[in-house]
């Protein structure tokens, strides 16, 4: 084979180099979905901590300790977590996890470290999205529900959360897209994701432009797909308003 097709063959097909891309993409998608799962679960817990009304010291009598009355340890803890995660780069977090926590303590695969690292990272952003969604609702909704005799839990479940979910869906999907793209740094701790695969292909085939353009196209195609699904879901949710 000759001409430009021959070049493409040399870059992508020879030595089964396309398998690097397939496996890299699978790695990327698996990390993204599992990390998103952790992010959602932990994010919900964190957001509930930030809006909780848990004040264990509210009956403190002493005036010297009066500041303790409004002290909410759950909220404080969640806010510290969110501040640290959002205030440091993801790559740095991955390296810390990789070098300090996991290698030191126990032997773990890069895949697991990536899932946990990105999951912990995403949770902080998800928590902020959910908190904003719930607190952005009209305060009158909770009041009306409570005034009808509903408990706090029931009001949250039937009135607040269904409305909040609708509001935060778009933001959650864009957080998912950010997460998907951000996994491209995982190669720095040795993860064989799509980006890493393309870098290898470029090195082995001595051609850089084509592999990187293909990488961009694959990322773009997938993010466009996610956005498309989000728009569909959003439209469905709007109709029931």
């Amino acid at each position: 084979m000759d001409g430009y097709l021959g070049v493409l063959y040399h870059i992508f097909i020879k030595d089964e180099r396309y398998m690097l891309i397939v496996n890299g993409l699978l790695f990327t998608l698996n990390v993204t979905f599992l990390a998103a799962l952790i992010g959602i679960i932990l994010g919900v817990i964190l957001s509930l901590m930030t809006i909780s009304d848990f004040k264990p010291f509210k009956n403190v009598k002493s005036d010297r300790l009066s500041y303790l009355r409004d002290f909410n340890p759950l909220t404080k803890l969640a806010l510290i977590y969110i501040t640290v995660i959002r205030g440091t780069p993801t790559v740095v977090q991955l390296f810390i996890l990789f070098n300090l926590v996991f290698t030191g303590v126990l032997e773990t695969s890069v895949f697991v470290i990536a899932v946990i690292g990105f999951g912990l990272n995403s949770a902080a952003y998800v928590a902020e999205i959910i908190r904003a969604g719930i607190q952005g609702l009209d305060k009158g909704q909770m009041e009306a529900a409570r005034a009808l005799g509903m408990s706090y839990g029931l009001s949250m479940r039937v009135i607040i959360i269904p409305q909040a979910v609708k509001k935060i869906m778009p933001a959650l999907v864009s957080e998912f897209i950010v997460l998907f793209k951000e996994t491209s740094v995982v190669g720095m701790i040795g993860g064989n994701d799509l980006t890493k695969a393309v870098r290898e292909i470029a090195a082995n085939s001595f051609r850089a432009a084509e592999p990187w353009i293909l990488a961009a196209l694959i990322y773009l195609l997938l993010t466009t797909l996610f956005t498309y699904f989000m728009r569909k879901v959003e439209k469905r949710l709007k109709e029931s308003d």
């Binding site: 009209d138 009158g140 909704q141 009041e143 009306a144 529900a145 005034a147 009808l148 005799g149 509903m150 029931l154 039937v158 009135i159 269904p162 409305q163 609708k166 029931s240 308003d241």
Partner: peptide, 27 residues
């Protein structure tokens, strides 16, 4: 003790009938 608010505070994700029967059925 029923309450009626200045800004109505109907539940926007429920229709009128659901707004009315929600508390009687659930509470």
């Amino acid at each position: 003790v029923g309450m009626v608010f200045q800004h109505f505070n109907l539940f926007p994700h429920k229709n009128v009938l659901e707004n009315i029967i929600l508390a009687p059925t659930l509470v």
